[in-house]
Write a protein that binds this DNA or RNA. Structure first.
Lengths: 204, 204
DNA sequence: CCTACCGATCGGTAGG
DNA sequence: CCTACCGATCGGTAGG
């Protein structure tokens, strides 16, 4: 009978993986972000967790699956944050603000996931599911803006351009945000909420 | 004495390359955009212009040089368009509008260049020059916004966030724009000019 | 512009 | 979790 090494109390709070499979996924995320999916080898990922490349196959089923699960998890989390953010909020201005704040918060807190998710779509052998989730996510913003226009609260020439603009500027956060920078995640989310409301013609 | 095949009058207008080296660069651009730099082989590029991989080396010096020249050309063109757009314009609102329109026009007209330029920075062995050009370009927008704020024409909490937002939403155009879509390049540029002015607090 | 080929790399498997 | 290894790929060169 074997006894597992107990996790020290600080591990989860420090973002340390609870088991080897989680450590492998984290290492893969970091390497995919830093070097690109194709430039990252199974040996690289193994070295990052202290084992050889072939030993990874005892914990994960392959490099492509690592990428696919990473990108599906990204979209699931983003959609869940969006749903929770707007849940129960009826006022369309407040709904848009909260949706934008969740969007920006995700891209600041999960920089690497967002970065890999946006850059490596072409590296997925079966991108269908991820693309469908992205489409659903984008539609949520467009419909929200269209509703605001219908209610006479927002004023835009094109709801599509407004939603693309808001989503694209939020995704850009993943490219330049750093902790210990000028703004905290909360400050950033609030200010992007303001900018989004300006875009839809609702002066702050 | 050999006689070159004369270029038919329509070639340049149709975007057809004038010589083999240009055809190779265009094929490389398209393949880098569609498959990624690392997934594109010299054999792929050769096949796209009707020759074998090794024959490419009579016209270009290598795959990495193809990428580096492509990305440097992208930044040179973008900076030149920016300079020409704001040249001689003193009013800060009009300067920002024209700068944004040039930015959006570039990302709509040169979708593939912008797409590759944004995705493959990590594939450059010597990214220094390209990064410096990008930094210069971004600084132009930030200083323009700071000037508008100083003149009391713009109102933003952070010129940096405003410039990042405007640049990021314009870069996003390269990800979804298609000819024969809802908007022409000119219409798109104008509407993004409006959105940018809203972001800086100058109602249209 | 071609074929032949070098040297290196890589994902994944075999077998322990 | 390891070493040994398979099968395939690739950028670039040699030599014509």
């Amino acid at each position: 009978m074997r006894v597992e090494r107990p996790h020290r109390p600080g591990d989860v709070a420090a973002g340390l993986p609870a088991d080897r499979a989680a450590a492998i996924r984290l290492a893969a995320l970091r390497l995919f972000a830093a070097q690109g999916y194709r430039a990252t080898t199974m040996a690289d990922i193994g070295a990052a967790v202290g084992i050889r490349g072939p030993s990874l196959y005892k914990h994960v089923s392959g490099k492509q699956v690592l990428l696919a699960e990473l990108m599906l998890g990204t979209m699931d989390t983003l959609l869940a944050m969006h749903t929770e953010a707007v849940d129960g909020v009826t006022d369309v201005t407040e709904r848009l603000r909260r949706a934008v704040e969740a969007h920006v918060r995700y891209h600041a807190r999960h920089r690497l996931e967002a970065f890999v998710g946006n850059r490596e779509i072409g590296s997925l052998e079966q991108p269908g599911r991820v693309l469908r989730l992205r489409s659903t996510y984008e539609r949520g913003f467009r419909e929200l803006i269209e509703r605001g226009v219908a209610e006479g609260v927002f004023a835009v020439r094109s709801a599509r351009l407004a939603s693309y603009s808001i989503l694209d500027m939020g995704m850009g956060v993943a490219n330049w945000f750093h902790d210990n920078g000028e703004f905290s995640v909360d400050q950033l989310a609030y200010q992007y909420g303001d900018l989004a409301l300006r875009i839809v013609g609702k002066a702050g």
